[in-house]
Amino acid sequence: MDVLLDNLSLFREGFFGTLKLTGASAIVAVVVGVIIAGFRVSPVPPLRIFGTLWVTLLRNTPLTLLFLVAFFIVPKVFFPDLDSFLLATLACGFYTSAFVAEAVRSGINTVPLGQAEAARAIGFTFTQTMRLIVLPQATRTVVPPLSSIFIALTKNTAIAGAFDNVELFNVSKTLSNDGYDIAMIFLWITLAYLIITYAINGLFRLMEHRLEVAR
C-alpha cells in the first residue's frame, strides 16, 4: 500500500503517460492503417504492392527493432534531438497500423457485393465508392478487431518506457530501483493496466452496440 501512497504523483504521471502514448499512437495507427488498407484494394498496382509490403514487413518486425530504428536511425535521417514521445508514438503507431490495415481490409471484404456494384452502377469512382459506400459499412465489422488491436497497443507502449518515456513500465523500473518491493509495484501496475484495457473493451462494446443495425 505504501508504494502507491508514497508515489501517487509518479503513478499518476505514469498512468497518464501510458494513456497519452496509447491515444496518440492509436490516432497515427488508424490514419495510416486506413490509408494502407485503401492502397491494398486500389486500382493502381504499385500502391497495392506498397500496401502489401508495408503490412507484411511490419507484422514480422519485433516492436523493439522499430524502437531502435526510431531512436537511432530516424534522428539521423531527419534531425537530431527529436522528442522521445514523438519517436515512441511513431514506432508504436506504424507498428499498429499494419494490424489496423489488415482489420480494415477484412472489414471491406464483409461488405455485401451488391453495395459496391450499385455504387459503381450509379457512376461512383473508386474513391467515392470507398468513402461513401464501403468504408462506412465496413466500420461495423472493423470495430471488434480494433478493440483487440488497441488493447495490444496499450500493452506495447510499455516498451516505450525503456526508451526515455514516462509511462507505467518506466514507473515500475524507477520504483524498483528505489528499493520498493517488486511484488507490490507489480500489483499496482497490473491494476492500472487492467483499468485501461477494460475501459477500452467497454468503450468498444458500447460503440459496437450503437453501430449495430439490422441488415
Binding site: 496499450t154 500493452k155 507505467l168 523500473k173 524498483s176 517488486i182 511484488a183 493496466y193
Partner: peptide, 19 residues
C-alpha cells in the same frame, strides 16, 4: 485473463527483478 492483460515486458521485468 490476468496475464493476457499485463504487458509481457512488465511480467518479464518483475520476474527478473525478483518476484
Amino acid at each position: 485473463d490476468l496475464f493476457r492483460s499485463i504487458p509481457l515486458l512488465i511480467t518479464i521485468f518483475a520476474l527478473w527483478v525478483g518476484l
